Simulated assay, not measured.
Amino acid sequence: MSATARKTAPMPDDIRARKGGAPIVSLTAYTTPMAQLMDGVCDFVLVGDSVGMVLHGLPSTLGVTMEMMIMHGRAVARGLKTSMMVVDMPFGSYEESPQQAFRNAARIMSETGAGAVKLEGGVAMAETIAFLVKRGVPVMAHIGLTPQSINTLGGYKVQGRGDAADALMADADAVAQAGAFAVVLEKVPAALADRITEEVPIPTIGIGASANCDGQILVVDDMLGLFTAFKAKFVKRYAHLGDDAKAAVAAYAEEVQARAFPGPEHVFGEAAPEKKE
């Protein structure tokens, strides 16, 4: 069944069942209006911790808090009826122990209505993923370039080249065996992404990976041309709304300065007198 024909939001098991089937469509969202535009078009909508950079002006995702993720998760949930919502677990909310991860994941799900959470890490996070899944928390994994680890990865670099390919393959195997229902592959060489997609039993969601992944995701503000602080190679601009908005703001300022706005059609006159019987 196509996303547009679906009457109810998919569950994590529905996403898992799409392995090798029709490509899975996803975008990030942080607000109700944007979520409404995606609803029924995307199979799942990710409330990404990229919100810290895109909407809050932070230099990375490291400063994003649980409160921020819950606030934006609630906003996105109000705009969704037929797409599943996944919420990122922010840096520092799950790495300490499986118990810490469960407390925070349970809070995210109960306070936002999310269908699943997403966390970064492969082999190192397999125990935590298994702990969450056994306790009723569906987990989407994220390997390759993990933005919360940029300080140890040396920046936003492609992951899995050369000798590092086997380690990334091990990460993919580990999260699948731990019970993740899908895994995001970010900034991974296409050939390695193809290999992972072929060998792991759960769907792969590519972002800077391969067209052969089981699905794709982009940051919506990137693909709409609203966030232009930097442009990754893997981002395709489907619109240039930032340029349009800048031109609109300039036109508004010009009309205000010329006293051309507001015009007669934008102001209110006196109320018509009531007719006496």
Rank of each mutant, 00 (worst) to 15 (best):
F181E: 14
S60M: 01
R16S: 13
M84I: 11
V184Q: 12
A232Y: 10
K134Y: 04
G225Q: 11
R161H: 11
G121Q: 04
P264H: 08
M71N: 15
A182P: 11
Q36T: 14
F234R: 00
I205C: 01
L226E: 09
L55F: 09
A253C: 06
D244P: 03
A105W: 06
M53E: 03
V220K: 01
Y156D: 05
G269M: 11
R6M: 11
L62R: 14
A211V: 04
V86A: 09
A141C: 08
T8G: 08
A209V: 09
A239F: 12
G136A: 10
G52I: 00
A165I: 03
F230T: 10
Q216T: 11
V41K: 15
E274F: 04
E96K: 05
R237I: 03
D244H: 08
A116K: 00
K134N: 15
Q216R: 04
V219L: 09
E198A: 05
P203V: 12
F230A: 07
R107E: 12
V76T: 07
P147H: 11
P264Y: 03
E265Y: 03
D13R: 15
D43R: 03
A164C: 13
G179S: 06
C42V: 06
E274I: 15
L185N: 02
G155A: 04
P10E: 10
A126I: 02
M68E: 09
A190P: 00
G208T: 08
A176P: 01
T65K: 13
G160N: 02
S97R: 00
A178L: 08
S210F: 13
